[in-house]
Write a protein that binds this DNA or RNA. Sequence first.
DNA 1: CGGCAGCCATGATGTATGTCAACGGACCCA
DNA 2: TGGGTCCGTTGACATACATCATGGCTGCCG
Lengths: 243, 243
Amino acid sequence: MPPFDLARPARATADVSPCGACAVRPLTVCAALDEDEIQRLAEITQSQRVAAHHTLFSEGDTAQNMYNVTSGSVKLYKLLPDGRRQITGFLFSGDFLGLSVDARYAYTAETVTATTVCRFPRRQMDSLLDEFPKLQRRLFSLASNELAAAQDQMLLLGRKTAREKIASFLLSLSERAVRRGQKSNPIQVPMSRSDIADYLGLTTETVSRTFTQLRTHAAIRLLEGGRVDICDETALMEMTESG
Amino acid sequence: MPPFDLARPARATADVSPCGACAVRPLTVCAALDEDEIQRLAEITQSQRVAAHHTLFSEGDTAQNMYNVTSGSVKLYKLLPDGRRQITGFLFSGDFLGLSVDARYAYTAETVTATTVCRFPRRQMDSLLDEFPKLQRRLFSLASNELAAAQDQMLLLGRKTAREKIASFLLSLSERAVRRGQKSNPIQVPMSRSDIADYLGLTTETVSRTFTQLRTHAAIRLLEGGRVDICDETALMEMTESG
DNA sequence: CGGCAGCCATGATGTATGTCAACGGACCCA
DNA sequence: TGGGTCCGTTGACATACATCATGGCTGCCG
């Protein structure tokens, strides 16, 4: 897999910092900061464009950067020695990644589609955290939210059936699209069946079969371009909650 | 389930605050603070004794307190409407709980054995966080660690076999005992088969069978008092990593 | 003391999901 | 144009684990 390209500086912004024009700012870690502080953050920020299916960093790498996704999508995963894979999360614009323990990443981050990220060097980020308690607080709050999401995912992985898993997955994609200000109904599902399987603890075949099953029951429609139309949200929600 | 008892104030400590004599301090959130700050924290802290199988708080409750376990053991879990349960973690002395999102607990916390906790009222804790950035930072670091543990658990739930799950579970209990300064070898396993099952995404029967299987293969011995002797740690570690 | 309840273990059987295999379509590129 | 690869789908079959059922053990309590 070839190394990703560094972005050239943004061209057509009238703002002193590219952050001024950032569409996803209210969603991200940056929402915590006022203009002066944003400026300081912008100084250590580098925007970066990454093609689909490229690795941002790997499990075990020394954690030199934190990232904010500004467009596109990213998956995070862990591997077992024999190659079995668990995807621990999908990230979209506005999402933050790069928290680490013992200065090493605990997972691999790989783009699903073409993606742009803001990159924050860890060392400089750390001093900003000392300087701006608001930023520290914001990061803490993001981590708490991620933790809650991880607990939901444990419930899903440990106790839900394949149908419930797929239904939960689709509804969660829909919810997150809304939070990003997109419409909820035909949702973009940019990841492959295999990625979905590794996220939900299933196989591609089971994912595929469950999709057709939902389609047969008229709960969803599979559109072109990897989009999914949720025809019967109520039915999906009922599937989420029990047998 | 009867309400738990409030503890009476600690009796036999010469220190101004009970925290001065706290055996688990270096393990906990308190390790971040110097003596003056500890004193401030001690002022808002209440020690509490809770019998086995009592609920500290329930999923959905407004999050009024944070806790530190000083002895005993606690389980955290989430429920599906039909009663299926996923235990998201076991806590032992030194562990912290009570992070929340939207001011509500995302899980239920219930004692496994008789337990003592330090209780911090959330409101007062929040102002201490503002006052002591070190504390804030410490809490952030704890949350990051928990997040990493949650990701490990997702890998376990989504991709490991029953044997690998049990092996990972036992080794992780052993590691944590060491971190608490206890010996690693005969480990205390205070939770029931049913709790273990709900933690690993299995049934009690499968947990039971897998234990006897490991016993038959001379990897472990089941001792009385809920203790488990790890006879062949290497074998367990190999089971953890692959088939 | 006797009976009840909870926990653990284990056997018999069922099933949701995994595995293996084949096929069609999209895309790429020589 | 043709062959290769990747992806998604579907079918036939296998299996790890769940489900159902039983019995032993312990502790509790009337």
